[in-house]
């Protein structure tokens, strides 16, 4: 068994490894989101020419994935460990594989593969190409080169690595069920994932599927939408983005309640996408006004020249 024998050691090991690769260690964003990609450290930082490296844990909420804690590894609330590097380095895949070694995973014993899986987020107006990484047939990581975000072409390209922490931990601890994962231990005392989250999982499945108040959610969605637009007009893209996050999560809840018909669904996605695009454009302009302070000089010069040529 790996020396990474608790859930929290896994997080610490990944933070240590990626910290050594020059990543800014961020903390989880304190709002509901469906994936680490929604964290501003990914979504917003992928926009424009500025360089950026960051790593963080992000709890993800996917209301439709709830199974009342009954499926051995399908939860509506779970953890991702997110790494982003922009520009994506040449040895990006090797850096990732070295992180697995750092966790005690021997790539000569396991069957590790990069299996095509292209990523698209209709609500973020974003897409990228990449893989899901399989270890012995299990998807443990999502690996993506962003091509477009918020409707804007990505240059330079941000590379994104998303580890599914629970799944990785299943391997490292040799257990089959999320619930049996050891979160931490002291002597012969241990706290399991179930101890921490099982009741929450059951209650939140009930809330998501059965209890969430549909009418209020619809009203909230409308408010979050109008608030985003108002804040964009006020020139506050970061504040506006928080309301996009709220709108997006509200949409996910309505979806879990089967409150949105198939035809309406498309319209709701479009509404969120319009907001994301607005934020992306406003954020780009705000960074340009600041002179793209984190951009490499030659890339900044190139982007500014191209913009002038285009105008």
């Amino acid at each position: 068994m790996s020396s990474i024998d608790t859930f929290q050691k896994l997080i610490v090991a990944l933070q240590t490894y990626w910290s050594e690769q020059g990543c800014v260690l961020m903390q989880p964003y304190d709002m509901e989101m469906g994936a680490g990609t929604f964290h501003p450290a990914t979504f917003l930082r992928s926009i424009g020419p500025e360089s950026w490296r960051a790593a963080y844990v992000q709890p993800c909420r996917r209301p439709t994935d709830g199974r009342y804690g009954e499926n051995p590894n399908r939860y509506q609330y779970y953890y991702q460990f997110q790494v982003v590097m922009k520009p994506s380095p040449d040895d990006f895949q090797e850096l990732y594989l070295a992180s697995l070694r750092a966790l005690g995973i021997d790539p000569l014993a396991h069957d590790i593969r990069f299996v095509e899986d292209n990523w698209e987020s209709p609500t973020l107006g974003a897409w990228g190409l990449g893989w899901e990484v399989w270890m012995d047939g299990m998807e443990i990581t999502q690996f993506t080169y962003f091509q477009q975000v918020g409707g804007l072409e990505c240059f330079p390209v941000m590379g994104e690595i998303t580890y599914g922490l629970e799944r990785l931990a299943l391997y490292l601890q040799g257990v089959e069920d999320f619930q049996d994962l050891i979160w931490t231990r002291l002597g012969d005392q241990s706290v399991t994932y179930a101890d921490v989250f099982h009741q929450y999982e059951v209650e939140m499945s009930s809330y998501n599927f059965d209890e969430a108040d549909v009418d209020s959610l619809f009203r909230q969605f409308d408010f979050f939408e109008s608030e985003t637009s108002r804040l964009l007009e006020a020139g506050l893209p970061l504040a506006a983005y928080e309301f996009v996050l709220k709108a997006s999560h509200t949409f996910n809840l309505l979806d879990a309640r089967h409150a949105i018909s198939v035809t309406e669904r498309q319209r709701f996605i479009l509404r969120v996408r319009t907001l994301s695009r607005g934020v992306a454009n406003a954020y780009y302009e705000s960074r340009r006004d600041l002179g793209f302070p984190l951009a490499a000089p030659e890339i900044k010069a190139l982007v500014i020249k191209e913009q002038v040529d285009a105008d």
Partner: peptide, 21 residues
């Protein structure tokens, strides 16, 4: 698989664990 694993039983066990959920 894409490898002559040093421990094929490990790869098999992993795959068996995946298909279950």
């Amino acid at each position: 698989a894409n490898i002559e694993s040093t421990d094929p039983a490990l790869v098999i066990a992993g795959n068996e664990r995946v298909i279950k959920p």
